[in-house]
Amino acid sequence: MVIIYFIELIVVGILAGFAGSLSGLGGGVVVIPLLTILFGVPIDYAAGASLVSTIATSSGAASAYVKERLSNIRIGMSLEVATTLGAIGGSIIAAYIYSKNLDQLIFIIFGVVLLFLLYPTFKGFREKHERRMHKDWSTKFFQLEGNYYDRSTNKRVYYSGYRWWFGEGVMGIAGIISGLLGIGSGTLKVIGMDWGMKLPMKVTTSTSNFMIGVTAATSSAIYWALGYVQPFIAAPIVIGILIGSYYGSKMLQTMAGKRIRLIFLMLLLVAGLEMILRGFGVA
């Protein structure tokens, strides 16, 4: 029954959106293994559906962040120069791989990237209570400063970041991975801004959320023309992921949410290994 299949795809989207926002990895990273391993969907169609749903979660969450003025549009935009170029490069590499029927290669790269992302996600990104006023020439030139109101301490936090070139480099890689695999690469973007540019975590996560949409739109345009967006798969997945990530973000704060998060990370470990095995033709 076609309608059952359609509803199953919505459920997959809900699960992926829920797991993606609880684990902090994003819905795309979860939906691709689910679609390919459980439903036998070709990986280019799975990646296409993932990319467009990444835009949905990014744009949908943007207004929640803006109320608190957490995301820094200047910093985000300056880094988008590298993510969009990377996304173009990554999409071209993906197009080449698919045209040579080397889909297995995408499975292997996806599995490896997923395993690499799990460790920082498992450790969690926490606000380090150090003074965040690092400065260098790029701080001044690129205006890498801002402030936001921290509701937990009732204080206005002033911050600045540095090593713009470092962030830009990490963003280039994040863009390539995003275009190659059809994911948002939010984790890498957070690493670049947190570890590279020493920006506060709250600013980092919300700015990364803003950037994901622009990066994914770049790759989506190329994926669209190449025919990787299959409407019958993409529509239920976007619908599901929007619903799932809405509830996932609500549950994030609760204790039960923290325990479920661990379970999801374990399952993603299995998914990553499964993708690699699938890529080598073992599973």
Binding site: I55, S58, S59, V214, A217, A221, V229, V238
Partner: peptide, 19 residues
């Protein structure tokens, strides 16, 4: 459905334009 997907892809692009 296709129009819905195009609207979705267009949202970040409009954001860049307005920025």
């Amino acid at each position: 459905i296709m129009l819905g997907l195009i609207v979705l892809v267009a949202t970040p692009i409009v954001r860049v334009l307005l920025s």
